[in-house]
Design a protein around this nucleic acid. Structure first.
Lengths: 116, 116
DNA sequence: TGATCATATTCCGTTATCGGAAAACGTCAA
DNA sequence: TTGACGTTTTCCGATAACGGAATATGATCA
């Protein structure tokens, strides 16, 4: 039972998971191929335990997959989990160019307001 | 001076700002035009104070602009702030189709591992 | 079995979110 | 000035992320 809500868990969403810069770095790194925890940690300059924790979060939201048992674990990218983010963002692309116009309108409006 | 780091502030990033579902809803709503706080609150079923707080976060990261002084405030979308998110995501698009193949490979691998 | 390497988890303290409720501003009209 | 409306802020309690350090688990090889 939930008593009080604070910020949503990092593991609740791809949106929340990628809010952390280091986790984005991990995903970016994994674009070039699978890697064991140690490599991730070393290449991104973080402690193995930290890397492991971040990878756990990414695994829980399905952005990363663990392959291979035994001593060697390989983490690989599963970018499908980013689709919801991309889809949500897609609705805004048309606004990027337009935003400049809208900013112009805003500035014009501001001028008018101050002149009045 | 920073003593200990917790989760990054919601206002530090577009990434952090859009991690909250209600803030995404607000941005989506504002695609159809500017709105005063009350309207946002009502249309999304949240208290005015909550809406105002969310809008403040969005304003601080530059995703939203405040127009008009006086009693009537109008909040409008400034989607340019989403560009960093889109750009980061862009690097992964090529992987979405590929991810299925990679999943196949993963499953094959799993089979092999379990047979051994 | 015991040592060693690779990963994962737990413990700790600090910080900041989130919602609701209540109170504080700020503006405009009577 | 008083009152009403629209908006923002403050206070509160509960939750949990984050890093580092230490510890635990797990697998492999001598």
């Amino acid at each position: 039972m939930i008593t009080a809500m604070a910020r949503a868990a990092t593991t609740s969403d791809a949106f929340n998971a990628i809010a952390e810069p280091q986790r984005r770095d991990i995903l970016t790194l994994l674009r070039s191929g699978e890697r064991p925890v140690t490599d991730v940690a070393e290449e991104l300059g973080m402690s193995p335990s930290r890397a492991s924790k971040h990878l756990r979060v990414l695994r829980e939201v399905g952005l990363v997959r663990l392959r291979g048992a035994g001593k060697q674990h390989f983490y690989g990218l599963d970018a499908r989990g980013l689709r919801p983010v991309h889809e949500w963002l897609g609705g805004f692309e048309e606004f990027w160019a337009g935003s400049f116009d809208r900013l112009d309108a805003y500035v014009q409006d501001l001028k008018r307001t101050q002149e009045d």
